[in-house]
């Protein structure tokens, strides 16, 4: 355990098909607004939120891109994903936002151990 109050929010669900992405990001934003250090890890379908060429949102739903863009204003600067998840979903890393960092398979568990709090969406 390093930082005593740092939070990892894991996002595993795609924009629009459920509200988990939005509600997961809300949790991250509220923690950050209170000054808690927050990192985000995107796995599986959650990677769809990292695509830089997202459109204006599914019909009738607010787009997720503005919220993704807003994260840095809340000092959430570290967006992580894993090589294995990227390969599984078939997204080329060139399609991702600029500030996404890749975790190698053997690094995943040590990465998660660094956080004193984890929320999984």
């Amino acid at each position: 355990m390093t930082d005593s109050e740092n939070l990892l929010v894991i996002i595993r669900h795609a924009p629009y098909s459920s509200n988990l992405l939005r509600e997961g990001l809300d949790a991250a934003l509220v923690a950050a607004a209170f000054g808690q250090p927050v990192d985000l890890l995107f796995l599986g379908q959650g990677i769809m939120a990292l695509l830089k060429e997202q459109g204006s949102g599914a019909p009738g739903q607010k787009a997720s891109l503005p919220t993704m863009d807003m994260l840095e204003m809340y000092d959430i600067e570290n967006l992580w994903t894993s090589e294995a998840s990227l390969a599984a979903i078939g997204v080329p890393s060139a399609a991702l936002r600029d500030n996404v960092r890749l975790l190698e398979p053997e690094a995943m568990s040590a990465f998660m151990q660094q956080y004193s709090h984890i929320l999984n969406f």
Binding site: R12, L43, G44, S82, A84, S85, A88, P105, M108, S109, A110, M112, Q113
Partner: peptide, 8 residues
């Protein structure tokens, strides 16, 4: 599958 990536 996601869990299996993460188990230490």
């Amino acid at each position: 599958q996601q869990m299996q990536q993460a188990v230490g």
